[in-house]
Amino acid sequence: MSATPEVTEAAEPPPAAVLAGTVAVPGRRWTAGSRRGFGWAFWVSAAVLGLIALAAVAPSLLAPHDPLATDLAAVLAPPSAEHVFGTDESGRDIASRLVHGARNAVLLGVGATAIAVGVGSVVGVIAGLGNRLLDGLLMRLTDVSLAFPELLLALLIIAVFGGGTLNVVLAIGIAGIPNYARLIRGQTLAVRRSGYVEAARGIGLNRRRIVTGHVLPNAIRPVIVLATIGIGTATLAGAGLSFLGLGVSPPTPEWGSMLSVSRNYLELAWWYGAFPGLAITALVISTTTMGRQLQARVEGRTG
């Protein structure tokens, strides 16, 4: 961290706002909100996520029926006052199953993102702050992992360790690490080479104070945005694995596997597939929207 590299070192690409494999596309022109406050889209998203969180914490408050109770008299019944989203092939109430499935969805999305962003940030910061050798080593490792498409990497991990909820969370989390590591490393390097770190050195601050006071806070600043958007991505990946039959086992209510089973009744019951699909989509849209608005706000404040 002595002399700022000049002509000799190739410029690091700016920390891309685009995460390969996620949807973190720069949202600056998208916002339905003003620069200072959040727009309606943010609050609608927050409300949706709040509802899902409530369902995850206390499903019995929201669910009209027992999610596992079968009713052979009402198999594949269309939406009605009794069953607002209809029933499935065993006569179970789809609305109740969706409510009870929320916990799994949240655990998967939050858990996998926590692993991916958490480990990725640590690796990225270490690489960005470390010496050339350490950085080189970590980044070559990241290069290699990036060559595996995330879904396939997750599948490989499941093939090795087996399926089940916990392993799915682990698989999605681990598969997401390289992307975040690379992003945070880029951010760390950009901050390390920034004018304000040079200025901090210029007023005689020591290395420890520069790292803790300027480099770290700015390097991990995008993490909250990345994590918010990442929850949506992880949820989608989890749904994909459930669909392939690698998630939880029936009859546990789970959105992805409900969708998967609904495939067999496409011609008979449109509602079976429609509502779980909408539930997942609503969750992902909400996290993506919140993430983008947070991002717009962060960018709006600091340029």
Binding site: W30, L236, A239, S260, L266, T281, V284, I285, T288
Partner: peptide
């Protein structure tokens, strides 16, 4: 943008299911 956000957020297989329902069935 709204359409894009929807398709980014919807699970791919669910979109496929909807396409199947509409165009095949």
């Amino acid at each position: 943008s709204v359409v894009e956000l929807f398709f980014i957020s919807a699970p791919g297989f669910w979109v496929g299911i909807v396409l199947l329902t509409v165009f095949s069935f």
